[in-house]
Protein backbone atom coordinates (compact mmCIF):
# COMPACT_ATOMS: atom_id res chain seq x y z
CA UNK A 1 0.00 0.00 0.00
CA UNK A 2 2.59 2.52 -0.95
CA UNK A 3 -0.02 5.10 -1.92
CA UNK A 4 0.07 8.86 -1.55
CA UNK A 5 -0.69 8.76 2.15
CA UNK A 6 2.64 7.09 2.73
CA UNK A 7 4.57 10.05 1.30
CA UNK A 8 7.43 10.32 3.75
CA UNK A 9 6.55 12.73 6.51
CA UNK A 10 9.09 15.39 7.17
CA UNK A 11 12.00 14.19 9.21
CA UNK A 12 11.49 14.54 12.95
CA UNK A 13 7.84 15.29 12.55
CA UNK A 14 5.80 13.14 14.90
CA UNK A 15 4.84 9.89 13.24
CA UNK A 16 2.62 8.86 16.08
CA UNK A 17 1.06 11.14 18.64
CA UNK A 18 -0.84 9.92 21.69
CA UNK A 19 -2.79 12.50 23.64
CA UNK A 20 -4.07 12.05 27.18
CA UNK A 21 -4.59 8.32 26.76
CA UNK A 22 -6.45 6.77 29.67
CA UNK A 23 -7.36 3.14 30.14
CA UNK A 24 -9.45 2.01 33.01
CA UNK A 25 -10.28 -1.58 33.95
CA UNK A 26 -13.25 -1.36 36.25
CA UNK A 27 -11.93 0.62 39.19
CA UNK A 28 -8.27 0.24 38.25
CA UNK A 29 -6.68 2.96 36.18
CA UNK A 30 -3.94 1.21 34.24
CA UNK A 31 -2.92 4.24 32.19
CA UNK A 32 -3.79 7.80 33.13
CA UNK A 33 -3.74 10.79 30.74
CA UNK A 34 -0.47 9.76 29.14
CA UNK A 35 1.02 11.63 26.18
CA UNK A 36 3.57 10.18 23.83
CA UNK A 37 5.14 11.47 20.66
CA UNK A 38 7.24 9.35 18.35
CA UNK A 39 9.25 11.40 15.85
CA UNK A 40 9.78 9.75 12.46
CA UNK A 41 13.03 7.85 12.22
CA UNK A 42 13.72 7.76 15.94
CA UNK A 43 13.95 5.07 18.57
CA UNK A 44 11.72 5.90 21.50
CA UNK A 45 11.61 3.81 24.64
CA UNK A 46 8.79 3.41 27.07
CA UNK A 47 10.14 2.25 30.39
CA UNK A 48 8.88 1.80 33.89
CA UNK A 49 8.82 -0.71 36.71
CA UNK A 50 6.72 -3.85 36.41
CA UNK A 51 3.03 -3.07 36.44
CA UNK A 52 3.53 0.54 35.41
CA UNK A 53 0.98 0.15 32.60
CA UNK A 54 3.47 -0.12 29.75
CA UNK A 55 1.91 -3.13 28.12
CA UNK A 56 -1.59 -1.74 28.53
CA UNK A 57 -0.50 1.47 26.86
CA UNK A 58 1.14 -0.58 24.15
CA UNK A 59 -2.01 -2.60 23.56
CA UNK A 60 -4.00 0.61 23.22
CA UNK A 61 -1.48 1.83 20.61
CA UNK A 62 -1.71 -1.45 18.73
CA UNK A 63 -5.51 -1.28 18.60
CA UNK A 64 -6.12 -4.22 20.88
CA UNK A 65 -7.72 -2.29 23.72
CA UNK A 66 -10.15 0.59 23.30
CA UNK A 67 -8.98 3.52 25.40
CA UNK A 68 -11.30 4.94 28.04
CA UNK A 69 -10.19 8.42 27.04
CA UNK A 70 -7.75 10.27 24.84
CA UNK A 71 -6.78 9.68 21.25
CA UNK A 72 -3.98 8.43 19.06
CA UNK A 73 -2.97 9.88 15.73
CA UNK A 74 -0.79 8.04 13.28
CA UNK A 75 0.60 9.99 10.34
CA UNK A 76 -1.81 12.78 11.11
CA UNK A 77 -4.84 10.49 11.00
CA UNK A 78 -6.97 9.93 14.06
CA UNK A 79 -6.81 6.17 14.48
CA UNK A 80 -7.76 5.38 18.02
CA UNK A 81 -10.08 7.09 20.45
CA UNK A 82 -13.16 6.32 22.44
CA UNK A 83 -15.73 4.93 20.00
CA UNK A 84 -18.69 7.10 19.05
CA UNK A 85 -22.03 5.51 18.23
CA UNK A 86 -20.36 2.22 17.37
CA UNK A 87 -23.73 0.48 17.62
CA UNK A 88 -24.76 2.35 14.49
CA UNK A 89 -22.28 0.42 12.35
CA UNK A 90 -24.30 -2.79 11.98
CA UNK A 91 -27.41 -0.71 11.44
CA UNK A 92 -25.70 1.03 8.54
CA UNK A 93 -24.96 -2.33 6.97
CA UNK A 94 -28.60 -3.32 6.78
CA UNK A 95 -30.31 0.08 6.61
CA UNK A 96 -30.23 0.54 2.80
CA UNK A 97 -31.59 -2.95 2.22
CA UNK A 98 -34.28 -2.54 4.84
CA UNK A 99 -35.39 0.71 3.21
CA UNK A 100 -35.58 -0.94 -0.19
CA UNK A 101 -37.51 -3.83 1.30
CA UNK A 102 -40.01 -1.35 2.72
CA UNK A 103 -40.28 0.31 -0.68
CA UNK A 104 -40.77 -3.13 -2.20
CA UNK A 105 -43.64 -3.88 0.15
CA UNK A 106 -45.19 -0.48 -0.52
CA UNK A 107 -44.89 -0.92 -4.28
CA UNK A 108 -46.39 -4.36 -4.05
CA UNK A 109 -49.26 -3.13 -1.93
CA UNK A 110 -50.10 -0.50 -4.55
CA UNK A 111 -49.39 -2.25 -7.83
CA UNK A 112 -49.74 -5.93 -6.90
CA UNK A 113 -46.88 -6.61 -9.26
CA UNK A 114 -45.01 -9.72 -8.22
CA UNK A 115 -42.25 -8.96 -10.68
CA UNK A 116 -41.54 -5.56 -9.10
CA UNK A 117 -41.49 -7.19 -5.68
CA UNK A 118 -39.02 -9.83 -6.79
CA UNK A 119 -36.77 -7.31 -8.51
CA UNK A 120 -36.71 -4.98 -5.51
CA UNK A 121 -36.03 -7.82 -3.09
CA UNK A 122 -33.13 -8.91 -5.27
CA UNK A 123 -31.84 -5.34 -5.31
CA UNK A 124 -32.08 -5.22 -1.51
CA UNK A 125 -30.10 -8.44 -1.14
CA UNK A 126 -27.56 -7.21 -3.68
CA UNK A 127 -27.13 -3.95 -1.81
CA UNK A 128 -26.57 -5.78 1.45
CA UNK A 129 -23.92 -7.97 -0.12
CA UNK A 130 -22.27 -4.92 -1.69
CA UNK A 131 -22.12 -3.11 1.62
CA UNK A 132 -20.58 -6.07 3.36
CA UNK A 133 -18.17 -6.67 0.49
CA UNK A 134 -17.03 -3.05 0.68
CA UNK A 135 -16.14 -3.57 4.31
CA UNK A 136 -14.28 -6.74 3.44
CA UNK A 137 -12.47 -5.79 0.26
CA UNK A 138 -11.74 -2.11 0.84
CA UNK A 139 -11.25 -1.83 4.61
CA UNK A 140 -9.47 1.51 4.41
CA UNK A 141 -12.11 3.11 2.21
CA UNK A 142 -14.76 1.68 4.50
CA UNK A 143 -13.10 3.16 7.58
CA UNK A 144 -12.96 6.55 5.94
CA UNK A 145 -16.66 6.40 5.12
CA UNK A 146 -17.75 5.70 8.69
CA UNK A 147 -17.18 9.21 10.14
CA UNK A 148 -19.55 10.65 7.54
CA UNK A 149 -22.36 8.89 9.34
CA UNK A 150 -21.22 10.16 12.70
CA UNK A 151 -19.67 6.83 13.63
CA UNK A 152 -16.16 6.55 14.94
CA UNK A 153 -14.68 3.19 15.66
CA UNK A 154 -11.14 2.77 16.82
CA UNK A 155 -8.75 1.09 14.43
CA UNK A 156 -8.54 -2.63 15.08
CA UNK A 157 -5.14 -4.30 15.31
CA UNK A 158 -5.24 -5.23 11.65
CA UNK A 159 -6.13 -1.66 10.66
CA UNK A 160 -3.04 -0.48 12.49
CA UNK A 161 -0.92 -3.00 10.62
CA UNK A 162 -2.39 -1.91 7.31
CA UNK A 163 -1.66 1.69 8.25
CA UNK A 164 1.98 0.77 8.91
CA UNK A 165 2.41 -0.25 12.54
CA UNK A 166 4.01 -3.63 13.21
CA UNK A 167 4.41 -5.20 16.63
CA UNK A 168 5.85 -8.05 18.65
CA UNK A 169 4.66 -9.48 21.95
CA UNK A 170 6.33 -9.64 25.32
CA UNK A 171 5.49 -13.31 25.70
CA UNK A 172 6.25 -14.43 22.18
CA UNK A 173 3.08 -15.24 20.26
CA UNK A 174 4.19 -17.08 17.17
CA UNK A 175 1.90 -19.39 15.27
CA UNK A 176 3.45 -22.29 17.08
CA UNK A 177 2.49 -25.13 14.78
CA UNK A 178 3.19 -23.35 11.52
CA UNK A 179 6.57 -23.35 9.87
CA UNK A 180 9.01 -20.47 10.14
CA UNK A 181 8.29 -19.48 6.56
CA UNK A 182 4.53 -19.64 7.03
CA UNK A 183 4.78 -17.38 10.05
CA UNK A 184 6.48 -14.73 7.98
CA UNK A 185 3.99 -15.22 5.14
CA UNK A 186 1.12 -14.54 7.55
CA UNK A 187 2.93 -11.37 8.56
CA UNK A 188 2.86 -10.35 4.92
CA UNK A 189 -0.90 -10.80 4.78
CA UNK A 190 -1.87 -7.15 4.63
CA UNK A 191 0.46 -6.50 1.68
CA UNK A 192 -0.73 -9.36 -0.49
CA UNK A 193 -3.64 -9.05 -2.85
CA UNK A 194 -4.44 -12.47 -4.15
CA UNK A 195 -8.05 -13.37 -3.40
CA UNK A 196 -9.85 -16.62 -2.76
CA UNK A 197 -10.85 -16.72 -6.42
CA UNK A 198 -7.22 -16.30 -7.51
CA UNK A 199 -6.24 -19.16 -5.26
CA UNK A 200 -9.04 -21.44 -6.47
CA UNK A 201 -8.24 -20.80 -10.12
CA UNK A 202 -4.51 -20.79 -9.37
CA UNK A 203 -4.21 -17.66 -11.49
CA UNK A 204 -0.93 -16.35 -12.84
CA UNK A 205 -1.18 -13.42 -10.46
CA UNK A 206 -1.58 -15.78 -7.53
CA UNK A 207 1.42 -17.88 -8.56
CA UNK A 208 3.57 -14.84 -9.13
CA UNK A 209 2.60 -13.31 -5.81
CA UNK A 210 3.16 -16.55 -3.92
CA UNK A 211 6.62 -16.99 -5.40
CA UNK A 212 7.56 -13.37 -4.78
CA UNK A 213 6.29 -13.44 -1.22
CA UNK A 214 8.28 -16.56 -0.47
CA UNK A 215 11.40 -14.88 -1.80
CA UNK A 216 10.78 -11.84 0.31
CA UNK A 217 10.06 -13.93 3.39
CA UNK A 218 13.39 -15.71 2.97
CA UNK A 219 15.18 -12.40 2.71
CA UNK A 220 13.59 -11.18 5.91
CA UNK A 221 14.59 -14.39 7.63
CA UNK A 222 18.13 -13.81 6.42
CA UNK A 223 18.05 -10.30 7.80
CA UNK A 224 17.19 -11.46 11.32
CA UNK A 225 19.62 -14.36 11.10
CA UNK A 226 17.28 -17.28 10.46
CA UNK A 227 18.43 -18.19 6.99
CA UNK A 228 17.71 -21.75 5.92
CA UNK A 229 15.30 -22.49 8.77
CA UNK A 230 12.20 -22.14 6.54
CA UNK A 231 10.58 -25.44 7.27
CA UNK A 232 11.25 -25.69 10.99
CA UNK A 233 8.07 -25.72 13.08
CA UNK A 234 8.06 -22.43 14.97
CA UNK A 235 7.74 -23.91 18.42
CA UNK A 236 10.81 -26.06 17.89
CA UNK A 237 13.02 -23.00 17.51
CA UNK A 238 15.25 -22.03 20.43
CA UNK A 239 13.94 -19.14 22.49
CA UNK A 240 16.18 -16.42 21.06
CA UNK A 241 15.33 -17.47 17.52
CA UNK A 242 11.64 -17.31 18.32
CA UNK A 243 12.12 -13.63 19.23
CA UNK A 244 13.94 -13.07 15.95
CA UNK A 245 11.21 -14.83 14.02
CA UNK A 246 8.62 -12.63 15.65
CA UNK A 247 10.53 -9.58 14.50
CA UNK A 248 10.81 -10.97 10.97
CA UNK A 249 7.08 -11.60 11.00
CA UNK A 250 6.39 -8.03 12.12
CA UNK A 251 8.74 -6.69 9.42
CA UNK A 252 6.87 -8.66 6.79
CA UNK A 253 3.95 -6.23 6.98
CA UNK A 254 6.30 -3.53 5.72
CA UNK A 255 5.79 -1.28 8.74
CA UNK A 256 6.83 2.33 9.16
CA UNK A 257 6.66 2.07 12.92
CA UNK A 258 7.68 -1.03 14.82
CA UNK A 259 6.41 -1.63 18.33
CA UNK A 260 8.63 -4.01 20.29
CA UNK A 261 7.36 -5.23 23.65
CA UNK A 262 10.35 -6.19 25.83
CA UNK A 263 12.33 -7.74 22.97
CA UNK A 264 15.09 -8.82 25.34
CA UNK A 265 12.89 -10.38 28.01
CA UNK A 266 14.34 -13.67 29.17
CA UNK A 267 17.61 -13.20 27.29
CA UNK A 268 21.12 -13.46 28.61
CA UNK A 269 23.52 -10.47 28.28
CA UNK A 270 25.05 -11.72 25.04
CA UNK A 271 21.69 -12.32 23.39
CA UNK A 272 20.51 -8.95 24.69
CA UNK A 273 23.34 -7.08 23.04
CA UNK A 274 22.79 -9.00 19.80
CA UNK A 275 19.15 -8.03 19.89
CA UNK A 276 20.01 -4.38 20.48
CA UNK A 277 22.37 -4.50 17.53
CA UNK A 278 19.58 -5.93 15.40
CA UNK A 279 17.23 -3.15 16.48
CA UNK A 280 19.80 -0.49 15.64
CA UNK A 281 20.27 -2.14 12.26
CA UNK A 282 16.53 -2.05 11.61
CA UNK A 283 16.58 1.68 11.98
CA UNK A 284 19.74 2.38 10.09
CA UNK A 285 19.15 -0.02 7.22
CA UNK A 286 15.38 -0.01 6.87
CA UNK A 287 14.73 3.49 8.14
CA UNK A 288 12.17 2.20 10.64
CA UNK A 289 10.85 4.19 13.54
CA UNK A 290 10.84 2.09 16.68
CA UNK A 291 9.00 2.15 19.99
CA UNK A 292 10.58 -0.11 22.59
CA UNK A 293 9.10 -1.24 25.86
CA UNK A 294 11.57 -2.21 28.54
CA UNK A 295 11.57 -2.49 32.24
CA UNK A 296 15.33 -2.57 32.44
CA UNK A 297 16.43 1.00 31.85
CA UNK A 298 20.07 0.14 31.20
CA UNK A 299 19.16 -1.87 28.12
CA UNK A 300 17.68 1.10 26.30
CA UNK A 301 20.00 3.86 27.47
CA UNK A 302 22.51 3.45 24.67
CA UNK A 303 20.07 3.05 21.84
CA UNK A 304 17.15 5.42 22.48
CA UNK A 305 16.69 8.94 21.19
CA UNK A 306 13.96 9.72 23.67
CA UNK A 307 12.68 7.92 26.72
CA UNK A 308 9.27 8.11 28.38
CA UNK A 309 8.96 6.81 31.92
CA UNK A 310 5.68 5.44 33.23
CA UNK A 311 4.93 4.68 36.84
CA UNK A 312 1.56 3.61 38.21
CA UNK A 313 -0.01 4.37 34.87
CA UNK A 314 1.22 7.95 34.73
CA UNK A 315 3.97 9.57 32.75
CA UNK A 316 6.52 10.81 35.25
CA UNK A 317 9.29 11.86 32.89
CA UNK A 318 10.10 12.34 29.24
CA UNK A 319 13.34 13.37 27.54
CA UNK A 320 16.70 12.25 26.26
CA UNK A 321 18.35 9.34 28.05
CA UNK A 322 20.60 11.80 29.91
CA UNK A 323 17.70 13.94 31.12
CA UNK A 324 15.75 10.94 32.22
CA UNK A 325 18.69 9.43 34.03
CA UNK A 326 19.05 12.56 36.13
CA UNK A 327 15.37 13.12 36.77
CA UNK A 328 14.77 12.80 40.52
CA UNK A 329 11.27 11.40 40.06
CA UNK A 330 12.66 8.62 37.90
CA UNK A 331 15.38 7.87 40.40
CA UNK A 332 12.80 7.68 43.12
CA UNK A 333 10.41 5.47 41.19
CA UNK A 334 13.04 3.32 39.69
CA UNK A 335 16.67 3.54 40.51
CA UNK A 336 16.11 4.56 44.10
CA UNK A 337 15.33 0.97 44.92
CA UNK A 338 17.81 -0.93 46.99
CA UNK A 339 18.72 -3.34 44.21
CA UNK A 340 19.69 -0.54 41.82
Amino acid sequence: MSDAAVAAPERREALLRARRVTKRFGGLVAVRETDLEIPAGSIVSLIGPNGAGKTTFFNVLAGILDPTGGEIEFRGQRMIARPVRAWLEPVLWVLPSVLILLVAVAVFAVTRSVLALQVLVLVAIGLLITTLLLAIIRPLRYRQLLPRFGVFRSARPNDMVTAGVGRTFQNIRLFQNMTVLENVLVGMHSRLHSTAVDAILNSKRHQREEAASRDRARQLLGLVGLRGRDDVIARNLPYGDQRRLEIARALASDPVLLLLDEPTAGMNPRETSEMMALIAKLRSELGLTILLIEHDMRVVMGISDRITVLDHGERIAEGTPEEVRRDPKVIEAYLGRPAA
Binding site: F25, G26, I64, L65, D66, R156
Partner: peptide, 8 residues
Protein backbone atom coordinates in the same frame (compact mmCIF):
# COMPACT_ATOMS: atom_id res chain seq x y z
CA UNK B 1 -22.29 -7.21 32.13
CA UNK B 2 -19.14 -5.16 32.00
CA UNK B 3 -18.55 -3.97 28.46
CA UNK B 4 -15.19 -5.66 28.06
CA UNK B 5 -13.45 -8.42 26.25
CA UNK B 6 -15.13 -7.90 22.94
CA UNK B 7 -12.12 -7.11 20.90
CA UNK B 8 -9.44 -9.39 22.17
Amino acid sequence: GQPIGERA
